[in-house]
Amino acid sequence: MLELMGLLLIFMIIAAIVAIETRDLLAAVISVTAVGFGSVIAFFYMRAPDVAIVPIVVEVLILVILIRATLRVGLKTFVGNRDFFGMMVTIAMLLVIFLAGIRVFNDLPAFGEPVMAKMMDAPSRIYLANGLNDTGAANIVTAVLLDYRAYDTLGEATVLFTSIIGAIAIIRKKARKKPSEPEVEEWTV
C-alpha cells in the first residue's frame, strides 16, 4: 500500500510541474486543482477524513477564484520565465536543498511509524487515551482543535478574518480622499 502513496505523490509532482510550466492558462489552473485533489485522496488514504473534507471544498473555491481572476480578464496564455542565468542559479540552489534534504531525512522516523509510537512523552498519547473523557468529543481531532489547542483555532479564525478585511481594503475602489471629506461606506467595488 505504501507504493500507492508514492505513486500518488509522483502524480502530484507531475501535475504541479504541468501547472507551473504549461502555457495554457486554464490548464494551469486545472492542474493545480489536480494537485489539491491528489492531496485529498492522500488524506483519505492516510486516515484523515476531517482534513480531507475541507480541501475538497477549498480546492473548488480556489478553482473558482483563480478562473475568475484569469478568464474574465480575457487572457489565454502565459509568457515565459525570468532570465536564463537566474533560472540556472535557482535550479542549482534547489538541487542542493534537495540533496541535503534526502540526506538528512534519513534521520526522520520511517513513513508509517509516527513519532508518538516511540516518544513516551508525546502529547498525542494523552489525547488518544483521555480525549473522550477530558472533552466529551468522540472525534479526537475536534477535541484537539477546539479544546486542547483551541487557542490555535482562535488564531486561525483571526487569520481568516484578517485576510477578508485585508482583501476588502485592497479591492476598494477609492482609497484616498481629502482630509476634510466625510467618510462614505460603499460596497460597489
Binding site: 490555535d152 488564531g155 487569520v159 484578517t162 485585508g166 481594503a169 485592497i170 476598494r172 482609497a175 484616498r176
Partner: peptide, 18 residues
C-alpha cells in the same frame, strides 16, 4: 499562527493606499 496574523495584516496595510 500568530506570525501569520501579523504578516497578513501587514500585507494588507502596505497596500492600503491602493
Amino acid at each position: 499562527v500568530f506570525l501569520e496574523i501579523t504578516s497578513i495584516a501587514s500585507y494588507a496595510l502596505v497596500a492600503f493606499g491602493g
